[in-house]
Simulated assay, not measured.
Amino acid sequence: MARPVIGLTLLWLLASLATASGQAAEPPRRIISLTPHLTELLFDLGAGDRIVATDDASDTPPEARTLPHVANYRSINVEALLAQKPDLVVAWRSAQSRMLAPIEQLGIPVFYSEPTDFASLGQEIRALGSRLGLQHNADAQADAYLARLKALKSRYGHGEPVRVFYQLWYPPLTSVSGVAWPAQAITLCGGHNLVANAASPYPQVGLEQIIKADPQLILAGSRDAEALAHWQQWPSLTAVKERRLVLINPDELHRFTPRALNAVEQVCLAIAAARTSLP
């Protein structure tokens, strides 16, 4: 087993030396994506035809669903990954870097993604485009994304704050705080997140706590029409009384791609509508 490892490491070292001496590195042609948002970004940038395998959750665009799977949210099938002979693996740093350590030791390059806020996604798009040799495409994508983000902030980020509760799921009643993207969306749109100061980014909260806070708007990341039905038990809540129970597309808001701004706009429109009914 030692000889193949040494061989792969040597080849990668030689390629690195060639780049350092002024020769441009070849863009990767066999890419494995281990997280859905990166799969989607690869297609957006025009590199979808270079993807040879993905993870179980990569479902957008539809073409991604036909590709072989070498990972899920808990594990990576290293043997299946290596069988695809990738020249680049793209992955989520906080969730997958430890699992990919053996792959990096073999000399296979890994591009890690970890967008921390909406603005940083623009930087990640540019960095990924540079790695793929698709800088022009990436700059165009990033510029359009950041322009839309700026427009949403300018249009909706002002005005009297609206008390918002975001239901991630129920039961147990779970919400979002801190840097979680739905929490950032609420702030961007001029809302006041009722659990903004929770210690966890995805805190479990008590019904009594939320009832006492009396949200003016309740959002849920769900496509299920019944996801917010349990709130009807408290008709005196402002959000219930004013019929401000709104579903947000979770496939957009919870995924780190430019499509997230479609859901952010949903959040902004819901907050703006709730503001019109403030006393």
Rank of each mutant, 00 (worst) to 15 (best):
V205Q: 04
A183C: 01
W234L: 00
H254E: 11
E26T: 15
A263Q: 06
L207T: 12
A53K: 05
E104Y: 04
D117N: 15
I76R: 03
V205K: 00
R255E: 06
A239R: 04
A127S: 12
E226R: 13
K153S: 13
G191E: 07
E114D: 14
D117V: 02
A18V: 13
P182D: 00
F43Y: 15
I32H: 06
V5Q: 10
L41E: 09
S222P: 00
P250H: 03
L269Y: 08
G178V: 05
A229Y: 03
A213H: 01
E124S: 03
A185C: 05
Q216D: 10
P215F: 01
V176A: 14
Q84P: 04
T54H: 05
L8P: 04
L45W: 06
L217D: 04
S277N: 10
A225E: 15
Q216S: 11
R243C: 04
A101I: 12
L67Y: 00
L269G: 05
A227E: 12
A263F: 10
P109I: 08
V240I: 04
T19K: 10
Q204R: 11
A142D: 02
S177E: 01
L34P: 05
A91E: 10
E252T: 12
A180E: 00
I108C: 00
N193M: 08
F118R: 00
R223P: 03
K85T: 10
Q135L: 11
M1L: 12
V90C: 12
S113N: 03
A64Q: 06
S277P: 08
S130P: 01
S16P: 02
I6H: 09
G191Y: 02
V267N: 00
N77P: 05
E124Y: 07
Q216C: 04
R155G: 01
L13W: 11
P279R: 02
D56V: 15
S120I: 01
A220C: 11
L134R: 13
Q167D: 09
L247C: 06
L34K: 01
T187N: 08
L168P: 10
V267E: 05
W169F: 11
A147P: 10
A57S: 14
G159K: 02
T257P: 13
Q141V: 12
P61N: 00
S222F: 08
A138M: 07
Y112I: 05
P172R: 05
S58R: 07
A273H: 13
S222N: 03
L149S: 06
A273E: 13
A20I: 11
K150T: 15
R29I: 01
L41G: 09
V246G: 03
P86K: 12
L82F: 04
I103V: 15
A151Q: 12
A71S: 14
D44N: 06
T54A: 09
A198M: 07
Y145R: 09
P28E: 13
L45V: 00
A260F: 06
I210Q: 01
V5T: 11
D224H: 09
L278P: 03
A151M: 06
V267P: 07
A83M: 13
S120K: 00
F43T: 10
A80S: 12
S113Y: 03
T9I: 14
A274K: 02
Y166D: 05
V205T: 05
H158C: 00
E242A: 14
A47V: 07
V179D: 12
L17P: 01
A24C: 08
G133C: 05
